[in-house]
Write a protein that binds this DNA or RNA. Structure first.
Length: 494
RNA sequence: GCCGCGUUCGUCUAGGGGUUUAGGACGCCGCCCUUUCACGGCGGUAGCACGGGUUCGAAUCCCGUACGCGGUACCA
């Protein structure tokens, strides 16, 4: 249908899917789904040297994990495939040739060494950014400067060549960006971009224009790093006589220390960089999605929490912000905690069980489902149920320094008194309320506050200075375990 | 260097000439709840980069400066 929305997420399989890439995918997805459109996945694997095995699978897995269903892609092709550029190789050449025939592109035979020399030469003569452009191309080896017969001969002899876009000398290229408004560039600042590489593969610039047209893409939503090359793309649409899709360039995700959030920076600042990391660290996908949606976009009201489905309804390109957005890890954690608390023990159990197994624990389902509600209000990530809750399964081996400091001179005496009181309790009477009453009895008898009993007790039971509500915890642990841990603590801490 | 894009609390942002003593969220701080750890509730902290215009009036429009970011490949 003419006029229908079709967007594409077009990552290059050169590594694991970056968190910034995931956000680009998300904005494309939200825009598509909010406009009854189609979300296309296209793999841009034209750089054979940088291809990474398994990267495509990682992209698919990541999108799926985040809840984004691909309408058309390598795994579920529509009728404009194939969806991997390497499989479309033959299509690009004819378009590049078309441009040559029309006089909008030309063959160039310069070797990489010759290009380097040209750049060196220009740099030495004071040009800091040498370009293969309307001026320099006249002194290079290409079909514009060489005699026609020589060009023919080189082509026939199979000499390596590239096809370059013939950028006009003086022309203003203006286009409207959906997030930034009108943007214009002077063609003299552009270089004669290589369209077809000597290995026969197209560059990104050719491939994305040809594919977006052939795949009937209505809106190109991509990162701001592409803004500068958009005029070249606009030129090509013009030469092909195609109507360009609408363009939308998203602000970059920045590192807290400034600059594009790169792998290196993110890691040194403790921010996971790949979607895979978030999956492995057991983040709630809803949290990451919600967080990412708000990183560079906002609905304009005061709301903060929205599901993927709601975001689809609310999203619009004109509410995307223009400035770069710093990745706020703490806010992500806040989102994660929020979504965790919304989930029931039944929902959480299978995941907790899996994580427990990774930690060599094999929790009983009923037992764990009693622990989960006790801890839900204080975990940041689902794996905390296992790590922070480890004492539910085994006696603390040592006591956290900070926790041990809460152990005072009279702690042993107070806990001894407590043990005496609970020792006589029947199994049936060993429940939270009674256990709490017994604490009260101790503090009254010794005329101390709640803390002096509670804190050492918590330390003895869990080895930590914080954690779930204590008496229900003790109830769950049972009499034998509780007394044993108290006795151990008295022994160890004096 | 050149080209382009940007700049509202520490961070994400609302606000697009008078409704603003610039709103919300995260963080941080305090109080309440809780005779424990939290959750939660309430409150506080903190911002229109700077300089010129335009206007009765500018965070909002224009110009300049500064700063930041991106691009400047036979990478995407």
């Amino acid at each position: 249908m003419e006029g229908s929305v079709r967007v594409r997420f077009a990552p290059s399989p050169t590594g694991l899917l970056h968190i910034g890439g995931l956000r680009t995918a998300l904005y494309n997805y939200l825009f598509a789904k909010g406009n009854d459109g189609t979300f296309v996945l296209r793999i841009e694997d034209t750089d054979q040297a940088r291809y990474v095995e398994g990267a495509e699978e990682d992209i698919q897995r990541s999108l799926k994990w985040a809840g984004m269903d691909v309408d058309e892609g390598p795994e579920n092709p529509g009728d404009v495939g194939p969806y991997r550029q390497s499989e479309r190789k033959d299509m690009y050449e004819q378009y590049a040739e078309q441009l040559v025939e029309q006089g909008n592109a030309y063959y160039a035979f310069d070797t990489p060494e010759e290009l380097d020399q040209m750049r060196e030469r220009l740099k030495k003569s004071g040009n800091p950014s040498p370009k293969y452009d309307a001026i320099t191309r006249m002194s290079m080896k290409n079909s514009l400067t060489l005699p026609e017969e020589e060009v023919e001969r080189k082509l026939e002899e199979g000499e390596e060549y590239v096809i370059r876009l013939k950028v006009p000398r003086r022309e203003t290229i203006r286009f409207e960006d959906e997030v930034r408004g009108f943007v214009s560039f002077e063609s003299k600042g552009l270089d004669d971009q290589v369209l077809l590489k000597s290995d026969g593969m197209p560059t990104y610039h050719l491939a994305n224009v040809v594919d977006d047209h052939l795949m009937k893409i209505s809106h190109v939503i991509r990162g701001e790093e592409w803004l500068s090359s958009t005029p070249k793309h606009i030129l090509m649409y013009e030469y092909f006589g195609w109507e360009p899709p609408k363009m939308a360039h998203l602000p970059l995700i920045m590192s807290p220390s400034g600059g594009k959030l790169s792998k290196r920076k993110a890691e040194s600042e403790g921010i996971p960089i790949n979607t895979k990391d978030y999956i492995e660290q057991k983040f709630e996908p809803e949290a990451l999605v919600n967080f990412l949606a708000y990183l560079g976009w906002s609905p304009g009201d005061d709301s903060e929490i929205h599901s993927l489905g709601e975001l689809c309804e609310m999203f619009s390109l004109d509410r995307v912000s223009k400035g770069g957005a710093v990745f706020d890890y703490k806010k992500l954690i806040w989102y994660n905690e929020h979504y965790l608390r919304e989930k029931s023990a039944d929902e959480l159990w299978p995941r907790v069980q899996e994580i427990a197994k990774e930690h060599d624990l094999d929790p009983d389902e009923e037992y764990m489902k009693q622990i989960i509600p006790l801890m839900k209000e204080r975990v940041s990530k689902v794996e905390d149920f296992v790590t922070m809750g480890r004492f539910f399964f085994e006696d603390p081996e040592e006591y956290e320094d900070k926790a041990a400091k809460k152990w005072n001179d009279d702690s042993a005496e107070l806990l001894e008194a407590y043990v005496e009181k609970i020792e006589d309790l029947d199994e049936g009477a060993f429940e939270a309320k009674t256990l709490k009453d017994k604490i009260k009895e101790v503090i009254e008898e010794y005329d101390v506050g709640f803390g002096p009993v509670m804190m050492p007790l918590r330390v003895a039971i869990s080895g930590m200075g914080y954690g779930p509500d204590l008496t229900p915890t003790i109830e769950l642990l049972g009499k034998e375990t509780t007394i044993r841990r108290i006795e151990t603590a008295i022994e160890k801490l004096g």
